[in-house]
Amino acid sequence: MAEPMKVRASVSGDAVEVKCLMNHPMETGLRKDAKTGAVVPAHHITNVTATLNGKPVLDAQWGGGISKNPYLAFKVKGGKAGDKVNVSWVDNKGDKNSADVTVG
């Protein structure tokens, strides 16, 4: 199972801003191992989804071009303190992770 991820959601103006830090190597499949010269197989997050109070707000597809240990922030209009936010991801090996937070 993957390392836990950090998600924080806060009210900013009339919107809720959600910030996430995920733990993932994000290998593109193009990098070569410095010692062996062998190509490191692709291992990166492919899909990230987020919901606010159970309603989908973000559905992202990622390639290996997102940096290692990805950072993502997005804003949702109309959210308020106490709302429930869920962020989940799946990678190309079927590994996945999910985190729930309450807007503070």
Partner: peptide, 22 residues
């Protein structure tokens, strides 16, 4: 590999995405 990410936004998600790329 030029395509890095594609974010679909719905149900009030604003036109704002912040991330880090290679």
């Amino acid at each position: 590999l030029p395509l890095i990410a594609d974010f679909k936004l719905m149900n009030g998600a604003m036109g704002y995405v912040s991330t880090r790329i290679k």
